[in-house]
Every structure is written in C-alpha cells, then in structure tokens.
Amino acid sequence: MKQNIKNFSKYRYLLSELITKDIKLKYRRSYLGILWTLIEPLLTMIVLTMVFSGFRGNSDKTFPIYILTGRLLYSFFSNATKAAMKSIRSNSQMIKKVYVPKYIYPLSTILSKYIIFLISLIVLAGVAIVLKIKPTIYMLQAIVPLLILLVMVIGVGLILATMAVFFRDMEYLWDVILMLIMYCSAIFYRPSMVIDGGFGWLLKLNPLYAVIVNFRNSIINGLPMDLSALLYSVIFSVVSLVLGIWMFYKNQDKFILNI
C-alpha cells in the first residue's frame, strides 16, 4: 500500500500530463475549440426538445433543462466508460515498452472526460438562467451526485478496461448495454410514463438513473435528494470501484501478453 502511494506520487505528473494531452488534442485543429463542449449539448437539447415536446403535445417550460441534465450525465457516463475500456489497448505500444503503472491510462482518460464534462455544465447554468429556474439552496447538493458519478465511472471503467483486454467483443457488447441504459434513464421522457406502464423497476435498477434523479432534484426541482436513490447509487459505485480495482490488479500483469 505504502509502495503504491509512493509510486503514484512519482507518476502524478504523468497523470496530469496525459489529462492535458487528451483535452488539448481533442480541440486542436477545430476553429471553435473548447466551445464545442458547450455547443454540442445545447444543439442536442434543442433537437430533443423539438422532437419530444411536439410528440407529447404539451409545453412544459422546464422540459429543455430536464432533457439537458439527463443528456449531459448520460453522455459523460457513456463517453468515459467507452474510452476507459479502450485505453489499455490504445496505449499498448507504451505498455509494451516502458514501465508505467497501468491504471494511469484508464484513470487519465476518465479524468480528462470528467473535466470536459464539468466545463459543459456551464451550458446548464446558461439554460437555467434563460428558463428562469429559481436558484435554491439545494443546488449546492448537486456536487454529491456528480462525485458519485465519477466514482461509478472509474469503477465501471476499470472493470471494462480489464475485460476488454481479454475479450475484444466487449466493445460491441458494451455499446448495446449503453443503449439499454440510455432508454432506462428517463432522459427524454418523464418517469411517470414508465412507472404507469408497470416498468418502474427498470428505472429503479439503473444506477445511472438514481444519479440523474438526485441531480435533477438539486438543480431543477429544488428538492432534497431522494434517499433511496442516493443509497443505491452510493452502494453501486463503491462496489463497482472495489470490484474494478480488484479485477484490474489481479490481471494487470497478464495485459502485456494479450495486447
């Protein structure tokens, strides 16, 4: 344990260097640069609002921000887990040649995506002001679901990164599972539509939905957090983190033979 901490502090600079690299290279050679992080969710929000509020035939004023919150959290979850899964394989050249603690790769990928995600929350603030969402004290608690989400993504990311080294088809399988998670996250529909249909358990089972619920409670509804959702998401993320670290450590010496 002590050895691990010492090793981590030696490679702390590499971690920050890899995070900057990810962010820098993502926006190099695009005219709008980092602005894309703001424009992209805004445009999707507009499209989704047009499609789904026309379809529902009502004019709920908070519907755009409802969509935006769900969409931002889901797309961070999906992008970061996908990137973490591929991180070991895409850095195989390095792993084969230089010794570096291997968790640096999934961790740096996830953290760089998290920073971009936090920047994109600016758009949320903008939309909230435009839609005249009343600021409440509960907005401060939004930090809790955001932290839970990060832990969850690191845990799931480590599990996926380990599995993807040994089974290449994980990448396709995860795409399908992500689609399932998206439809079970109530991103562009109200949960009541599903609960009334008797499929409420699908939402309850989805840890990402639990995070989204608490985030929406804090930002839009001005309500305290839903305690059962909070408990479920905390347990899920801690369990997946422990499982992820355990799987990764147990198998990391075999990575080099399989990439």
Binding site: K10, Y11, Y13, L14, E17, L18, K21, L25, R28, Q93, M94, K96, K97, V98, V100
Partner: peptide, 28 residues
C-alpha cells in the same frame, strides 16, 4: 530501449519532451 516509444504523434517535439519525460518518471 525503443527510443521514442512513448511519443504522441499529434504533439510537437516540445510537448513530447514533457510527455516522454513524465513517462520516464521525471518531475515537471
């Protein structure tokens, strides 16, 4: 061994000095 295995092709030489140095475990 395998000099420059840790280089990023998109990065400039100067940026790669920092990146590769970090890979070798040097401090900033």
């Amino acid at each position: 061994l395998e000099l420059g295995a840790g280089f990023d092709m998109q990065y400039t030489g100067a940026e790669n000095i920092y990146l590769y140095g970090a890979v070798l475990g040097y401090s900033k």
